[in-house]
């Protein structure tokens, strides 16, 4: 069971209630006109033509950010949200480089900076069995909270019930190996600023393919090096102790 969010872009009226609810709950400054995600705007409603696109952390099932984090500051919780422990973070910013959706942002102007991203209200609400602030306040029912399986079923039901309304694609069902934030849209997602060529396989697999081979490499190379050291030394010893050639006898 994984907590998830389904955002139906055809229903979003762009009222920004989710944005303000998020800022209120997380105590973030309410500056106007936030157009993109930042360290103080963890969810945002972008306008692409006439479509309102609410962006937030995708909460991947196998998150690249958590896999690259050297200290486990970012981690996938059993309930579903990808949470962040700022007391562990060393500020290497590999999560920002590694995220295929460019979600994590940094507090560049603070002397003790943190990584900031949507945590799906994990500590305040979701871990206590409640739903996050953004889905609570959505007046249009455009963004809803639930279990991932149930939301996928609901999304498929909507696609089947009104195929003319949507492109036949649930964004997040397979992207990056599946995400906990799902989208429905009337317009192809790549026209809405969603990364188009996101892989279907989990990103951590790419580096794990390399890392998982290292023990073999180390053991083979280690034995090889010691072997070479021993053989060459032995040969030099033998060469020194060899009886002199016949002619000199």
């Amino acid at each position: 069971m994984t907590a998830a969010i389904l955002t139906d872009l055809t229903k979003c009226v762009g009222c920004q209630a989710c944005v303000w609810a998020c800022k209120e709950l997380n105590g973030l400054p309410r500056e106007d006109g936030a157009r993109q995600l930042s360290a103080t705007t963890l969810t945002v409603v972008e306008r692409h033509g006439r479509v309102n696109v609410r962006r937030q952390c995708m909460h991947c099932l196998d998150p690249a950010c958590a896999s690259v984090c050297p200290v486990n500051a970012l981690h996938k919780t059993p309930e579903g949200p990808v949470a962040y422990d700022e007391s562990k973070c060393i500020g290497c910013r590999y999560c920002m480089v590694g995220c295929p959706f460019n979600v994590p942002k940094y507090e560049w102007d603070r002397r003790v900076p943190r990584v900031q991203k949507c945590l799906m209200c994990y500590a305040q609400l979701v871990s206590k069995g409640k739903q996050p602030a953004c889905t609570q306040v959505c007046p249009a029912g455009a963004t809803i909270f639930g279990q991932r399986d149930a939301l996928l079923t609901e999304a498929r039901r909507r696609l089947a019930a009104d195929p003319g309304r949507y492109v036949a694609h649930i964004y997040g069902e397979q992207e990056a190996g599946g995400t906990s934030v799902l989208y429905l849209s009337a317009v192809p997602f790549e026209q809405l600023g969603f990364p188009a060529n996101v892989r279907k396989d989990p990103y951590p697999r790419l580096t794990w393919n390399v890392l998982s081979n290292l023990p073999q490499v180390v053991s083979v190379a280690g034995v090889g090096l010691i072997g070479i050291w021993w053989i060459v030394r032995r040969r030099q010893e033998l060469a020194q102790n060899l009886p002199p050639p016949e002619s000199e006898r």
């Binding site: 896999s67 690259v68 050297p70 580096t207 794990w208 890392l211």
Partner: peptide
Amino acid sequence: MWNPRSVMF
């Protein structure tokens, strides 16, 4: 704080 899946680690 170990994360053996991380290259950075």
